[in-house]
């Protein structure tokens, strides 16, 4: 029953993503760049959390010293460690350009994309840990199962009551209608906001920033008719009402999505819904 999704990439996907996150492709691999004479090297010390589920009952830190180029990111340093020092080190990464959202880690206690954390911004020993609030699968690899389940629960896709036949044409949208939700569609599901959100850490049943923000994104979409279904998840005790507006989600978001604003708006929407449902005669939202 869904409208065409995702929308044309020229509007929303790759184009927009790179606009919001101007992460130039960073050619950080050791052999990937013509050797310029100005290239500076630096010995980087990493303190990496290690956990092996087959042998360990607790995690411990392991220190690595590795020669890096000055303009590398933390992910490059980890790659160098894995290549040249310790092939048993586990972590996730894919795109190396802040688009795929898979290399989220705690870097000096801050949730960051390791592909977007430049070594030049760090001094001394750099402490690298898996994202907080998530179970550690192995080393820096966390289990995203809980987030994935919550993401599914908020139905993050366009819902239409009647499917249009293809001949009826495309689902049109004005630029103003697009702008209404565009910012909230930039989410790359990197889960940094969950690692930053203390309410998620304290009450794990909380649906959490990114999933609720995506619910809001589709609620705001002029093509969508699924708001009532989503609010059945959003306006529950586990939904937006668990949020106390710490605002950490928006501070750590690498794509400038600003989940805190989406959740504040959802609270207002949810309150108005409640008034309509309970205080107005024959009220249905």
């Amino acid at each position: 029953m869904n409208a065409p999704f995702p929308p044309p990439p020229s509007q929303e996907g790759g184009d927009g993503g790179s606009q919001a996150m101007p992460a130039p492709y960073h050619d950080g691999l050791p052999s990937g760049r013509p050797s310029g004479k100005t290239m500076k090297e630096r010995l980087v010390q990493l303190e990496v959390l290690r956990y092996n589920p087959d042998t360990d009952t607790e995690a411990h830190f392991q220190r690595y010293e590795v020669m890096c180029q000055e303009e590398w990111v933390v992910l490059d340093a980890l790659n160098k460690v894995k290549e040249s020092i310790d092939p048993t080190l586990n972590y996730r990464w894919s795109c190396h350009m802040a688009v795929c959202g898979s290399c989220g880690m705690m870097i000096n206690g801050e949730p960051k994309l390791s592909c977007h954390s430049f070594l030049r911004d760090y001094e001394g020993v750099i402490r690298v840990e898996p994202l907080t609030h998530f179970p550690v699968e192995r080393d820096l690899v966390t289990a995203p199962d809980d987030f994935m389940e919550k993401l599914k629960r908020v139905k993050p896709y366009v819902i239409t009551k009647q499917k249009k036949p293809i001949e009826a044409g495309e689902y049109k949208q004005t630029p103003a209608q697009l702008m209404k939700f565009r910012q909230y569609s930039m989410c790359i599901n990197c889960m940094l906001c969950y690692a930053a959100c203390p309410e998620y850490g304290l009450t794990p049943h909380f649906v959490g920033p990114a999933a609720l923000t995506l619910a809001h994104r589709y609620n705001l979409d002029s093509r969508d008719e699924g708001r009532r279904e989503r609010m059945e998840v959003v306006a529950t005790r586990e939904g937006v009402w668990e949020c106390t507006f710490v605002g950490a989600c928006s501070e750590v978001c690498p794509a400038q999505v600003d989940p805190a604003s989406a959740l504040q708006q959802l609270k207002i929407v949810g309150s108005i819904d409640w008034i309509v449902e309970h205080l107005l005669p024959g009220g249905k939202p």
Partner: peptide
């Protein structure tokens, strides 16, 4: 899960 009555306390 039913919708929450939290708006009663949150709106004020």
């Amino acid at each position: 899960m039913a919708k929450s009555h939290k708006p009663v306390v949150w709106f004020p």
